[in-house]
Amino acid sequence: MPMIDIYAAAGTFADPHQVAQDAAIIVKTAEAVPDIPMFRQNTAGFVHELPASNIADAEGASDHVRVQVITNAGALDRDKQLAVVAQLTDLVVAASRNEALRERTWVLLTEATAGGWGLWGHAQTNEELVTAARSEIASLQAKAAGDA
Rank of each mutant, 00 (worst) to 15 (best):
E59G: 10
V92P: 04
Q124R: 14
E128L: 09
T105P: 14
G45S: 03
R102P: 07
E99L: 09
W106T: 10
S62T: 11
Q81F: 02
H122G: 00
E127H: 10
G60Y: 02
L91S: 08
A94H: 05
A100D: 15
A75T: 00
H64P: 10
T71D: 06
D63I: 04
K80S: 13
Q124A: 11
G60N: 04
L109N: 08
T43L: 03
D90A: 14
G45E: 02
A75E: 05
P51C: 00
T105E: 13
L119F: 02
L50T: 08
L88Y: 04
G115C: 12
H122Q: 10
V69G: 06
L82Y: 07
L91F: 09
A114C: 12
H48N: 11
F46N: 11
A44I: 15
G45L: 01
A61T: 07
E59T: 07
Q87R: 15
A123R: 14
G74Y: 04
G45M: 02
T43I: 03
D77V: 02
R104V: 08
A112H: 11
A56E: 05
N126Y: 08
W106R: 05
G60I: 02
E49H: 06
N98V: 00
L91P: 09
A61L: 13
Q68W: 06
L50V: 07
E127K: 11
V92R: 05
F46L: 14
A61C: 00
N98M: 10
G45P: 03
E128A: 14
A100T: 14
G116Y: 14
G115M: 08
N98Y: 10
R97D: 15
A58F: 11
A86K: 11
T43M: 03
L119Q: 07
R97W: 04
N126V: 14
L109A: 08
L108G: 12
W120T: 05
V65R: 02
V92K: 09
V47A: 06
A86C: 02
S62I: 09
W117K: 10
T43R: 01
T110A: 13
V65T: 06
P51L: 04
A44K: 15
I70S: 06
T125C: 08
W120D: 00
E128Q: 15
D90N: 10
G115T: 07
Q68I: 09
Q124S: 05
K80G: 04
W120V: 00
Q81G: 04
P51R: 05
H64K: 13
Q68E: 13
A100S: 14
D57P: 08
E111G: 14
G116C: 09
L50P: 12
L108R: 12
Q124I: 00
E111F: 15
